[in-house]
């Protein structure tokens, strides 16, 4: 049961929306309370209520930390098997065929939190497509949270995190142990570059993408923001590039300029002629 008073929760809702365009629905007070507890503690405060009240009175500027805590999502290695099976079985083989001359593939993993998704893609590529060793393969991982970007750059994961979704043979092959943590192999870290990006602000200059993985992100935005993001994704994608959304997300009724491209048991989206 949350003890956060409605005006305090409303303040958090407004702050998060202003900074990230993410919409916190009513009833998510418990989420704010649990995620902001550590922020309150870090500032030496006894409760989330005290944290918010200090912020509201202007005596504390913890906006970055609050937005950071509220917009960070749980992730795991190889989250949801179907998209990764599709990448392995058809998406990457077809892309490799189409890029035989350029010998270059650029993949964008958006809102990647602590980096498990880009490293899963990197492992999958190393594991199943040895011919790409001589290609230029870039995986750009973006997130709104500077602390998550740092974690992605370090490629350092706890024992609990490597238990989540990572097949043991891959743990042994692509990680080294460092005390109680596991560190991603240098070779994979070189494939992944972490970059700050607020999907709701002006996008940084990025190369055209062959694949865009933007999973479980759109659900947090209102319809106009979803449409704006999808429009920008279309401009960033190569004409034969593919977009992957989360299992519960779709471009339908949001952007008519994408066509559905089923691959195995996952759905990808390709920009149409426009």
């Amino acid at each position: 049961m949350s003890t956060l008073a409605p005006p305090d929760f409303d303040y958090i809702v407004q702050l998060v929306h202003r900074r990230s365009a993410i919409v916190l629905e009513p009833g998510k007070e418990y989420l704010a309370e649990s995620r902001l507890e550590s922020v309150a503690r870090e500032h030496g405060l006894a409760s989330v209520t005290e944290l918010v009240q200090r912020m509201r009175s202007g005596s504390l500027d913890a906006g970055d930390a609050v937005v950071d805590a509220m917009t960070t999502n749980e992730t795991s290695f190889f989250r949801d098997a179907h998209p990764f099976n599709a990448l392995r079985d058809t998406v990457l083989p077809e892309l490799i065929e189409a890029r035989r001359v350029a010998r270059s593939i650029t993949i964008w993993c958006g809102a990647t939190s602590s980096g498990q998704e880009p490293y899963s893609v990197a492992m999958l590529i190393r594991e199943h497509f040895p011919e790409l060793r001589d290609w230029q393969v870039r995986i750009i991982a973006t997130d709104i949270s500077p602390s998550m970007l740092d974690r992605t750059r370090q490629g350092r994961y706890s024992q609990l995190e490597v238990n989540r979704g990572l097949p043991a043979p891959m743990l042994v092959k692509y990680f080294t142990r460092d005390g109680m943590h596991w560190v991603v192999a240098e070779d994979l870290r070189r494939m992944v570059s972490a970059q700050y990006m607020n999907l709701n602000e002006r996008w940084p200059v990025m190369p055209p993408f062959d694949l865009v993985l933007l999973r479980n992100v759109l659900i947090y935005f209102d319809v106009p923001t979803k449409q704006a993001i999808l429009g920008k994704v279309r401009q960033q994608l190569r004409r034969d590039g593919l977009l992957l959304l989360g299992g519960a997300e779709t471009t339908m009724n949001l952007d008519a300029n994408f066509e559905r491209v089923p691959h195995g048991r996952s759905t990808w989206y390709r920009p149409t002629g426009a």
Binding site: L160, V162, N163, P167, A168, L171, V172, F175, R177
Partner: peptide, 26 residues
């Protein structure tokens, strides 16, 4: 949790390896 242990278990026929504590999600 030593990598050598994990490799040894896999080499001898384990299909997977999980380091305790094992959570429901894991």
């Amino acid at each position: 949790s030593e990598p050598a242990h994990i490799a040894r278990a896999l080499m001898n026929g384990a299909d997977e390896y999980a380091i305790k504590p094992l959570t429901m999600d894991a």
